[in-house]
């Protein structure tokens, strides 16, 4: 009798241990998969710290890190990084200003054509960027918007607005109509209700939409390439492309610029993981 129970519990213990080993093995395996997937990013950082030259060094670790690449990157691309930053911030403002009220309306007002609007937004996300660039080039040429920050901000917002409307609408759908109704009874206008009730409740979605608007605009390459013709206004993505255009002569500067351009994504993924993850699952775009 006693031996039987002993046996039983030892079987259970070994089963538990096997399970513990299995989860630990999963963690190790997961780290290996991630290391494999992120190796190119490690390599980018590594290459950026190698002494400059036109050949790529094969050292696996920058034992003697050189910041010459970064010096050259900042000298060549510093202004372009700033341009990208201004454009990305502008895109966030334009996107939220246009998308948030629309998201609120599509979530709370009972328009008869809502399903058509949603369909249009879904289809808009599928329109190839080159189609938009093609038409905007001619229009911008007439309006004097080529080579301008407002022109790029407005174009870049097309990456973000449909996504922002959908993700903010999803979160504003959960606001009970009764809360807004109550505010209206207390004399709040539609605008008041939107700012003081809907916006605070949808804060997380607002942040997610803003972060993605920033990343989309920061990453934009197509509009930078097609809607600028001089090097006066040149986002950093275009700067990298021009580095790559001719035979690459200074890999460490290219890679240093690449690292600097990756910083927003890396930083946001670390400090705002919650919002980024929400956007990745909720939006299903890009």
């Amino acid at each position: 009798m006693t031996t039987a129970t002993l046996n039983h519990s030892s079987v259970r213990v070994s089963a538990l241990r096997r399970k513990a080993i299995k989860t630990r093995a999963s963690t190790v395996l997961g780290i290996l998969f991630l290391a494999f997937m992120l190796f190119p990013i490690y390599w980018m950082v590594n290459a950026s710290l190698q002494p400059s030259g036109n050949t790529l060094s094969a050292d696996f670790f920058p034992w003697n890190p050189s910041f010459a690449g970064y010096e050259k990157a900042i000298a060549d691309q510093g202004k372009n990084l700033l341009t990208s930053l201004v454009i990305a911030l502008g895109t966030v403002v334009v996107t939220l200003a246009i998308a948030a009220p629309a998201a609120y309306a599509l979530a709370q007002f009972k328009f008869r054509w809502i399903s058509w609007a949603l369909l249009a937004i879904l289809i808009a996300q599928m329109i190839p960027g080159v189609v938009i660039a093609n038409a905007l080039y001619a229009a911008y040429n007439n309006l004097g918007l080529l080579n301008s920050i407002p022109g790029l901000v407005l174009a870049d917002a097309s990456h973000a607005i449909p996504f922002a409307i959908l993700i903010m609408r999803a979160s504003m759908m959960s606001i009970p109509a009764s809360i807004i109704e109550a505010a209206r009874v207390d004399g709040a206008g539609q605008v008041r209700a939107f700012f003081s009730i809907a916006m605070p409740i949808a804060k997380n979605a607002l942040i997610t939409a803003g972060l993605f608007a920033f990343l989309f605009a920061w990453s934009d390459f197509l509009f930078a390439l097609t809607l600028t013709t001089t090097d006066e206004i040149r986002p950093v993505t275009l700067g990298i492309y021009q580095y790559l255009g001719t035979q690459v002569s200074n890999w460490s500067a290219v890679m240093a610029t690449a690292v600097l351009s990756s910083l927003p994504a890396i930083v946001l993924l670390v400090v705002a993981q919650k919002y980024i993850a929400a956007g990745a699952t909720g939006g299903a775009v890009k």
């Binding site: 997937m37 992120l38 190119p40 990013i41 980018m44 990343l215 920061w218 990453s219 934009d220 390459f221 993505t237 990298i240 492309y241 690449a258 351009s261 990756s262 994504a265 890396i266 946001l268 993924l269 980024i276 993850a277 990745a280 890009k286």
Partner: peptide, 10 residues
């Protein structure tokens, strides 16, 4: 998610 969030040109 990192490879997906980086600018494609990077």
């Amino acid at each position: 998610l990192l490879p997906w969030l980086l600018p494609l040109i990077v």
